Amino acid sequence: HNLTITQGKLFFHYNPKLCLSEIHKMEEVSGTKGRQERNDIALKTNGDQASCENELLKFSYIRTSFDKILLRWEPYWPPDFRDLLGFMLFYKEAPYQNVTEFDGQDACGSNSWTVVDIDPPLRSNDPKSQNHPGWLMRGLKPWTQYAIFVKTLVTFSDERRTYGAKSDIIYVQTDATNPSVPLDPISVSNSSSQIILKWKPPSDPNGNITHYLVFWERQAEDSELFELDYCLKGLKLPSRTWSPPFESEDSQKHNQSEYEDSAGECCSCPKTDSQILKELEESSFRKTFEDYLHNVVFVPRKTSSGTGAEDPRPSRKRRSLGDVGNVTVAVPTVAAFPNTSSTSVPTSPEEHRPFEKVVNKESLVISGLRHFTGYRIELQACNQDTPEERCSVAAYVSARTMPEAKADDIVGPVTHEIFENNVVHLMWQEPKEPNGLIVLYEVSYRRYGDEELHLCVSRKHFALERGCRLRGLSPGNYSVRIRATSLAGNGSWTEPTYFYVTDYLDVPSNIA
């Protein structure tokens, strides 16, 4: 807008934040220059609390790290170098490059900038070799853009010569660093050979998330399962459950009422301010606690030095998902009996873990797994792929695949051998790939016309006998059925096997 004052003059007093240069501009645009008398524009009460600059400061050096910015700028000295009290560095987070010096300023003089007072450097006698002032900004957020400017702080001049310097606002972004852990990993099994893994992005990506790394490792069953005799009275049979499938998407929606109208769909109840505040506090606490764990609990591995020492970490090797089922080394339970199943799973520490690289999504279907087997899954978020990966501390989750139908069934015939004193040795093959492992066998036998009897055969007993022995049988026709019990439950009964026990007292003698 054009402003013209045809008559009258300007009068400025007691404006401590208004620089004289701005008042002189007002004289020019209003056409009143030359009308004012000496005392109409006070030299001592206008701009006496402001830094009124008329020179431009330029930054000469900028260096960044993930949490620091090192700045240096060209030296500046007023005509009387004693008038320079120091520099004021202003900075704040700036997602967009549209910041002005006066953003967030209120009537009390406060604003949204963080201000650092910096002492002037030592003055050199040689004007050509003056030290460049600077400042190291610490405690910054990774991968965050900051708006920065600097200006001088000078003393009051009796001659009211307006001098000083100020830089333009520059924008500097800190470097990326390792992201925080992925949030809320959930693993479920939808079949006997697959596990579905879902997660949420890290709360602090500290860069642009480029991919996720998912490692999985087959877990050995508890050692007590191999040692305890679950045929003993009072000892509860062990059981394991597989990871249940995901709930429906509708039930997972946030901010939804727990109660549904019987007449149909209901609208979600909005969260109160107290609920939102509580969630923010919980989120802040979780982030602080995660940072504490990362800094205190997890110790970084030592990389190899120039002395030739090897990095103890196993090298990563990509495998196809079809090879995942046989990740671990199978060892027989008892070496003397080769027909026992290889369900003991000690994992070799030198073995390469299978892994998958996930790009542009937060889910993965891990296939080719062994049925009813526990897996430990390790999830890392990465925001750099080359020249070397920059990934987060791992988040861990466990899951067990679903049982395989008929995996616990005894394959092959049940054979028998009759000894003296009416002892019958029953023999059968253990299931080759049971659900988890076989903890015991149930032997059901009966003599024709009598009630059915049951015998429990422990895992250890089966390994020693290759089956079991029935003792003290009365003469007669017998039928026997056997079924295995694994961590997933009972298998199917075998087809009945028949044998006849004679009275050993009636056996004919070869003595003449």
Rank of each mutant, 00 (worst) to 15 (best):
E290M: 11
E290W: 05
T333P: 03
E442S: 10
E290G: 15
F499D: 00
N360Y: 06
P475V: 08
V297I: 11
K361G: 07
K361N: 11
G491W: 00
A309E: 14
T415K: 15
Y504R: 04
Y292V: 10
P508W: 02
R400Q: 04
D204M: 01
M402Y: 15
L321Q: 15
T494E: 00
T373L: 05
Q275W: 11
M427P: 01
R469Y: 10
T333N: 08
V365R: 11
Y500N: 14
L364S: 13
V457Q: 05
A405R: 12
V439M: 04
R218Y: 10
C468H: 09
E247D: 06
F499T: 01
K236W: 09
L237N: 06
F499W: 02
P245M: 03
S305K: 13
L455G: 09
S203A: 14
M402W: 10
W216A: 05
A381L: 02
R319T: 09
R390K: 11
E465F: 10
F226P: 09
I418T: 12
M427C: 02
G207S: 11
V411C: 10
S367L: 11
I276D: 10
P205K: 00
K361L: 09
G449R: 15
G467F: 04
H371V: 06
R459V: 15
I276Y: 11
K287F: 14
P332E: 15
V423P: 02
I377A: 06
L440H: 13
K271G: 07
I438N: 03
K302F: 09
S251R: 10
E227P: 11
Y500E: 02
S304Y: 07
S367W: 12
T386N: 08
N510A: 15
E465V: 14
E389T: 11
L470K: 00
T497E: 08
I438K: 01
V297G: 12
A220P: 13
T343G: 11
G476K: 00
T210Q: 05
F462L: 04
R218M: 15
Y504W: 09
T307M: 11
E221L: 11
N422M: 04
V424N: 00
S341G: 08
Y445Q: 02
S458L: 08
P338L: 10
V345H: 06
M402P: 07
S315E: 12
P475W: 07
C266Q: 11
E282V: 10
N295F: 10
Y500M: 05
E282Y: 10
L464R: 11
S392Q: 03
E258S: 11
P346V: 14
T502L: 13
V297P: 06
Y500P: 03
F372T: 02
R466I: 09
S344R: 14
I482E: 00
S367M: 04
R483N: 01
V359D: 01
R318K: 13
P238T: 09
L277Y: 03
H461Q: 11
N477Y: 09
V296W: 08
Y230F: 07
I438A: 04
P238S: 07
A399K: 13
T303K: 10
G467P: 01
R318I: 10
F355P: 05
E495W: 13
K278E: 05
S284D: 14
M402D: 08
P496G: 01
P312K: 06
S341K: 07
P245C: 10
E279Q: 08
V501Y: 08
S363L: 08
